[in-house]
């Protein structure tokens, strides 16, 4: 018994400490200038899935789509207790917008076949669209509950959850399988577990080994690197330390729905707003001072 969950996570540029180089001249995110982190909401999605497993049994499988570096968030998931992790990586998936991304993820989830719950973070801090989760549910043809905050009840194939509706909450009931998008108020994400960290810090996806070898053996003869990679993969596989890696062919993706061709989103305009003011402003604790502050806030559109 128990419930099998799939969690979709994303590695994102850390937008919490923005510097001047965070944006390129064309207004897109300069990923190289920002450290890559685990998308905060996704940590809560993972925690929600782990709690279901800890309480009812079952399994937690984590899926991410991204370049080889995204394996770092998968290792983070292993540190926290995920049973299985998979990276979806393919150059042909580059520049996918939310529509293409949700299509690719839906193909991956279909390949996994057996699942009861899909958890996504509410939104990612790089795009802030909150679209991938809902679109994924639509493509899978399963019901969805957004803004998940609490599991009220789960028995048989019926789930009841509390969702936050902004100015209050509502409790909704539905049938499994179901997709949930999780708020950061849903739970406190558990810390990484030290023993799992020491064990899984060695986990690698084949393409990571490939990248390491490309650096270590720049002058290797044809086939030599591949042989070395296979040799290194064996012990990792034996110890359960090989991160599964899928490309678009593995999930039978139709290429016209992937990457640039599958992405109808067009960016209309991007404004580069660089905050230059530093430190703090002293406001006199008087009627006059407060009135002045409110006036300033209205003038710069912070209020109103």
């Amino acid at each position: 018994m128990g419930y099998d969950s799939i969690v979709c996570v994303k590695q994102v540029p850390d937008t919490s400490n923005i510097t001047g180089e965070a944006m390129k001249a064309d207004g897109t995110v300069n990923r190289a200038a920002l450290p890559a982190v685990f998308n905060p909401d996704d940590l809560h999605a993972l925690e929600a899935a782990l709690q279901v497993r800890d309480r009812f049994g079952g399994s937690v499988t984590v899926l991410t789509m991204g370049p080889p570096a995204a394996c770092e968030v998968l290792r983070e998931c292993l540190y926290r207790g995920a049973d299985r992790v998979i990276i979806l990586s393919d150059r042909r998936a580059a520049a996918s917008d939310t529509l293409a991304t949700s299509y690719i993820l839906s193909q991956a989830v279909r390949k996994l076949a057996r699942y009861d719950l899909v958890f996504c973070g509410r939104q990612a801090i790089d795009g802030d669209t909150a679209q991938v989760g809902p679109q994924l549910a639509e493509k899978l043809g399963i019901s969805q509950v957004t803004y998940y905050e609490q599991l009220v009840d789960l028995s048989g194939r019926t789930i009841r959850v509390r969702r936050n509706v902004g100015n209050g909450w509502e409790i909704v009931e539905g049938r499994l399988p179901m997709l949930l998008t999780v708020l950061d108020t849903a739970n406190e994400a558990r810390p990484a577990a030290a023993k799992r960290v020491m064990r899984y810090k060695r986990a690698r996806a084949p393409m990571e080994l490939g990248a390491e070898l490309a650096k270590a053996m720049p002058d290797a003869a044809p086939g030599q690197k591949e042989a070395e990679q296979a040799r290194r993969l064996e012990p990792l596989k034996a110890k359960g330390l090989c991160i599964e890696q899928w490309d678009l062919d593995d999930i039978d993706a139709d290429l016209q729905w992937c990457g640039v061709t599958g992405s109808p989103t067009k960016v209309h305009r991007v404004q580069s707003i660089v905050l230059t003011k530093e430190g703090f402003t002293a406001i006199a604790p008087t009627e006059e001072g407060i009135r002045g502050m409110i006036r300033d806030l209205i003038v710069d559109h912070t209020l109103g």
């Binding site: 990484a192 030290a194 960290v197």
Partner: peptide
């Protein structure tokens, strides 16, 4: 490396 990781966990 393990020590550093363990201390990072406890720092977190």
């Amino acid at each position: 490396d393990n020590y550093k990781r363990i201390l990072s966990i406890i720092g977190d």
